[in-house]
């Protein structure tokens, strides 16, 4: 009689987790707005500090945008598992009868939708501010579209590892940044290539490979890290 009710499919558990995280994000708007504002502010400081001249700015535009993306991703990562760890929802997640891989993936996707995706959307506007040649806008958005989920997935591992620590401070950045460097390199190279009229396809392919790799491995690693963190 106890097992009369139906166990939900992993798919519906995935959707439940995704919806829950999006709901939390929309109710706690700081988590969305702060990293995004940080991103915009960092970028708008460069014309002030370096030079408002179009030529100089265009040269550094790709790098500036990508570094700002990386830093704002760092800033947003912290909220990924911390709340769940503190209120005990993480234990419910770990003890649910579904593969943790998909639940972690759902959380990562929700996180990307609220932190990475707005950055992708806003990037042409900021690229315009930095006088990036307009023919590179497409490539920039594409690199960000592929690169930001990769950053979220990589960051998720570090957050999962450190969620149990009382004071984390810089450790999150120390773990995450080295792994994020390839994304940064290929992302900026692709934009620079397209700005100087060269094909960017090769770099985009490498970015896609990084995304594919982290999509398949990072949730596994995050799941294992979460198990270690709660024990």
């Amino acid at each position: 009689m106890l097992s009369a009710s139906v166990k939900p499919s992993t798919r519906s558990a995935f959707m439940l987790t995704l919806k829950r995280d999006l709901l939390i994000a929309f109710k706690r708007k700081n988590d969305i707005v702060n990293p995004f504002m940080f991103f915009v502010i960092v970028i708008s400081l460069f014309p002030l500090a370096i030079s408002p001249e179009g030529e100089k700015l265009a040269e550094i535009a790709a790098g500036v945008i990508w570094i700002a993306v990386l830093l704002s991703a760092m800033l947003s990562m912290d909220s990924l598992y911390r709340g769940d760890f503190e209120d005990g929802s993480l234990e419910i997640l770990l003890l649910s009868p579904h593969p943790l891989f998909f639940l972690v993936l759902a959380k990562n996707i929700a996180h990307w939708l609220v932190s990475g995706f707005p950055v992708v959307i806003a990037s042409p506007l900021l690229a315009y501010m930095l006088k990036l040649p307009s023919e590179s806008y497409g490539t920039l958005m594409l690199t960000l579209l592929i690169g930001t989920p990769t950053l979220s997935l990589i960051g998720s591992i570090a957050v999962a590892l450190t969620v149990g620590l009382g004071s984390r401070g810089l450790i999150l950045a120390v773990i995450t940044l080295p792994f994020s460097v390839p994304v940064l390199i290929f992302g900026t190279l692709a934009v620079q290539a397209s700005a100087s009229g060269l094909p960017a396809g090769g770099y985009l392919t490498l970015l896609l490979a990084l995304l594919a790799g982290s999509l398949s491995l990072a949730p596994l690693t995050s799941a294992a890290a979460l198990r270690i963190s709660v024990s």
Binding site: K7, P8, S12, L16, D87, G88, I92, P97
Partner: peptide
């Protein structure tokens, strides 16, 4: 086949009871 209730009760403070339960109970059964 296990239900765990811990010190940290697994209730998100931003969400309503209904939203909390929809997720926490919904993970184990429809």
């Amino acid at each position: 086949d296990l239900l765990y209730f811990g010190h940290r009760v697994g209730v998100n403070k931003i969400l309503t009871p209904l939203e909390n339960l929809r997720w926490s109970a919904g993970m184990q059964r429809t």
